[in-house]
Design a binder for these strands. Structure first.
Lengths: 148, 148
DNA sequence: TCAGATCATTGAAGTAACTCAATTATTTAA
DNA sequence: TTAAATAATTGAGTTACTTCAATGATCTGA
């Protein structure tokens, strides 16, 4: 996002984040996915299945947005939606074997991008960057950072 | 955007960058500016005046985009465009005293956001984060990365 | 002088994302 | 049994960003 040379760390972070996002988007786009679908798959791969509600909170998107994400993933056979027998208003989303394969591709694509981005950092520096980034206060609402 | 909990450093960086961008955008928006206009002002404040061409390269935007940025800034009296006497096709862009004041406000707004974001980091950690970020390979074309 | 290139500008078009209200089906509570 | 609440969905509307082609003014080289 065009910061050029500035000594503002905030702008540096914003710019690098945007570039990273573009790289990841491009890498996933080659596989017919978006970052959001990739993250959805990654979360589903961890848990196997989730309620659509839980996925909503995890992805922090509008319900209507999640619907189209899942529509696409389901159309491609990567996830399956079925009614929750305990509450038929709800959907349970489950990743399919094809979805797990796609998720592996996603991880791989992101890992490749990361290798490029962080090629000039050794393992310790990468760990340090991760630690420092994790301490950046990102929750908009409360400064307690790790609350709610 | 929406990475939730993942161990992918690339996604973490993308997410934090996006959030930082939103914060800065909001802070500048309160002053009728966008990040892009702010960066344009910051660059002009450093150099005093620049050719529109140089500004193009610095901001890495389409010429038609820069035009509307400069239109806004000029309308608000923050910059002035005049023809380059040496080549009347070209414009020279100069920051005004009002522009310098606005730039100071921009710096201040960004600094405030940074204080919030990095509140949990001490000075040394901030310096370290800056150093590590600066070593992340961002230029798609250049740095030996993809070579040519 | 003329042809082609360059610079700034304009305008159209496309894209992607988000928000919001309304709808349907279902559950819960009174 | 009925009213209210909830889950997922649909669709409309908005915003912001981006690209691209066309234009007028100006410069450069033959």
């Amino acid at each position: 996002m065009a910061t050029a040379d500035t000594d503002r760390l905030g702008l540096l972070l914003a710019r690098h984040g945007a570039i990273t996002n573009i790289r990841i988007r491009d890498a996933l786009g080659a596989n017919g996915l978006t970052p959001r679908k990739g993250v959805a798959l990654m979360n589903l791969a961890r848990t196997g299945r989730m309620s659509q509600q839980a996925l909503l909170e995890t992805l922090e998107v509008d319900p209507s947005v999640l619907v189209v994400i899942l529509n696409d993933l389901e159309r491609d056979g990567l996830v399956e939606r079925r009614r929750d027998p305990a509450d038929r208003r709800r959907h349970i989303v489950e990743i399919t074997p094809a979805g797990r394969k796609a998720q592996a591709v996603v991880e791989d694509a992101i890992a490749t991008v990361e290798r490029e981005l962080f090629a000039d950092l050794d393992d310790e520096q990468v760990a340090q960057l991760r630690l420092l980034l994790s301490r950046v206060r990102t929750s908009i609402n409360d400064p307690a950072c790790t609350e709610a």
